[in-house]
């Protein structure tokens, strides 16, 4: 692989960032394909367990967005 393509696990809130991601898609905006999106019902659903589980199963980074 020529370039380092990291995997970024993204936890997106259904009502905020997930909506933004959807809108970005509908508007045909381009963004890097390194993110792997997991939709959560609310950022309040987030738990430190998820972050550690993401990292120890091989993610390069974790992104939490509300």
């Amino acid at each position: 692989m020529a370039e380092n393509e990291p995997k970024i696990i993204s936890f997106l809130c259904n009502w905020c960032s997930y909506g933004a991601a959807d809108l970005a898609g509908v508007s045909r905006m381009e963004y890097p394909s390194n993110i792997r999106v997991i939709r959560i019902p609310c950022t309040g659903r987030m738990s430190p367990k998820f972050i550690l589980a993401g990292l120890n199963q091989g993610a390069d980074a974790v992104w939490v967005s509300g």
Partner: peptide, 18 residues
Amino acid sequence: PGRLHFSWISSAESTKFV
């Protein structure tokens, strides 16, 4: 430090998302 990120984006802010 760079392995965990937090952000806050409203559902109307597709440009900020990108």
